[in-house]
């Protein structure tokens, strides 16, 4: 950012999505583990040969995609865009324009993408895969909470949580910077319970509470 952080905050971005435009076609998206100093068409189908086979771990039945790029082995896995989301690829229409006005135009869409690693089998420990999977949770985090919701939950929580002191419930937060109010605390706990029912478990449990709290503080 040669102009400093301040100007970047003034960016004005207009995003245009035409959801049912038939001219926006599905695209075959690959996320590769390298940068290349080129942006444009390439003879992908001629040179990029992919074979499907099992990984090196005998107990793992899953098939992975194997290929090479410039002699270097890459291993990939297909990932679906989570339910309720659509993948779009945008192009910046005013790319040459130095002003801060940006217009993103949809050029294609995708329902799945292939994620590639150099030499290692894609796993849930890969940051990009984590980010992708956490979309599910973000949808819950970003859900708007109405005043009525809060009232209802305070009511029900008073019944359920009597005797639970405020201190014990804050111990799990590690990045808290804002003061916590008693009733908010309780709401969080209820929320967590509800969402566990919705099977959002995975590896996110530790960070889960942080995340929900953060959302609340913003409000």
């Amino acid at each position: 950012m040669e102009n400093g952080a301040n100007t970047s905050l003034n960016h004005n971005i207009v995003i245009k999505i035409k959801k049912d435009d038939p001219s926006i076609e599905d695209t075959n998206l690959q996320r590769l583990p390298f940068n290349i100093g080129y942006n444009g068409f390439a003879k992908v189908s001629n040179y990029f040969k992919v074979t499907e086979k099992s990984g090196p771990i005998p107990t793992d039945d899953k098939k992975y995609l194997y290929s090479t790029f410039r002699g270097i082995q890459i291993i990939g896995e297909k990932m679906k865009v989570p339910n309720g989301f659509d993948g779009y690829i945008f192009r910046d229409e005013n790319e040459q324009d130095d002003s801060c006005n940006r217009q993103w135009e949809t050029i294609s869409k995708f329902n799945e993408l292939t994620y590639w690693n150099r030499e290692t089998i894609p796993s849930d420990f890969d940051k990009q895969i984590q980010a992708f999977k956490s979309l599910n949770i973000l949808s819950m985090v970003n859900k708007e909470i109405t005043e009525e919701d809060i009232k209802n939950e305070i009511k029900s929580s008073k019944k359920n949580n009597q005797g639970n002191s405020n201190e014990t419930s804050t111990t799990t937060t590690t990045t808290t910077t804002t003061k916590t109010e008693k009733n908010q605390e309780i709401i969080l706990k209820i929320e967590k319970k509800d969402e566990e029912k919705n099977n959002f478990k995975d590896d996110m449990d530790d960070t889960y509470e942080d995340n929900i709290k953060q959302k609340k503080y913003k409000k």
Binding site: M1, G4, A5, S8, L9, H11, I13, D92, R102, K127, Q128, Q130, A131, K133, S134, L138, T174, T175, T177, M204, T207, Y208, D210, N211, Q214
Partner: peptide
């Protein structure tokens, strides 16, 4: 992101960043 604003663990651990500044 020069503001050096503290991010919450969840976002850090899952590599979720505010990318608006990047464009």
């Amino acid at each position: 992101d020069k503001n050096d604003k503290k991010r919450f663990m969840f976002f850090k651990e899952n590599n979720i960043e505010n990318c608006i500044n990047d464009f």
